[in-house]
């Protein structure tokens, strides 16, 4: 049943030009950033050789592109998650799902999986560009894989938060603004480290994402993203159940 809902959710994204346009624009922007950074590396290659622990092409081109992609994924999330449940509620089609022999967990996981499929396309295109570095010479595969993992973890967290916000209202615009506000707050929470201290550091999306982008795979970062995703998916299920009751 999760598959049925996921396929429908995934297809519905492509029923409007938004998804196609987003993929095309993002691919152009990421390619531009990627090639700019390769050019930057080639320009300073000689000077970098003289430095100890100088960054390699993977760090400059691939990780640099992944870092920008992370922020872009965060920004585009409300565009795609806001309609998911809010639009179903507004149009009345949520009653079709609620009166069907489907558990709320399947509904939420189906929606989540469908949206994640769209993010996977973006991440796959990014991964292909990063792995293309191997065509020109040695590249740090471990760092690329860690970067991809970071993007996947950030995506599932963004989708989970977006789904929860979408479950709270019948207005997709309200869901979009709330999603952006919460994601952006979690991203900047550690900008002024004096505010919040250690808690702000732990809650910071940017802190954990940047850690993965540096090629350092720490369980604390992985657990942070997984915990946040599970928390918001559970809250979405709980909210829909509370509403039914």
């Amino acid at each position: 049943m999760i598959r049925t809902i996921a396929v429908r959710e995934f297809k519905s994204l492509f029923s409007s030009p938004l998804a196609w346009l987003t993929l095309a624009v993002l691919q152009f922007l990421f390619a531009w950033i990627f090639f700019s950074r390769i050019e930057l590396f080639l320009q300073y290659q000689a000077r970098l050789r003289s430095l100890d622990a100088a960054p390699g092409i993977t760090e400059i081109a691939a990780s640099g592109m992944f870092t920008v992609a992370g922020l872009v994924l965060l920004i585009i999330t409300p565009l795609f998650t806001s309609r998911s449940l809010a639009e179903e509620r507004r149009s009345g089609s949520l009653k079709l799902i609620l009166s069907s022999p489907v558990s709320l967990t399947s509904v939420v996981m189906g929606k989540f999986t469908g949206l994640f499929g769209f993010y996977l396309i973006i991440i796959l295109l990014l991964a292909l560009m990063a792995f293309s570095l191997r065509l020109g010479g040695p590249a740090d595969i471990g760092q690329i894989i860690t970067g991809i993992l970071g993007l996947i973890l950030l995506s599932i967290t963004c989708i989970s938060i977006g789904l929860f916000m979408s479950s709270l209202t019948a207005q997709p615009t309200v869901a979009a603004i709330s999603t952006f506000a919460l994601l952006f707050f979690l991203w900047i929470i550690k900008w002024d480290v004096k505010t919040g201290g250690a808690l702000a550091t732990y809650l910071s999306l940017q802190e954990h994402f940047t850690s993965l982008m540096s090629g350092y795979l720490a369980s604390v970062d992985v657990i942070y993203f997984l915990l946040l995703s599970i928390l918001f998916l559970s809250l979405t299920i709980w909210w829909l159940d509370w509403e039914r009751n």
Partner: peptide, 18 residues
């Protein structure tokens, strides 16, 4: 609920269409 709802067909006031 799942067995019970499998025996039900429901048309709300506003058709739940896409």
């Amino acid at each position: 609920p799942l067995q019970a709802r499998a025996s039900l067909g429901y048309l709300p006031e506003k058709p739940p269409i896409y």
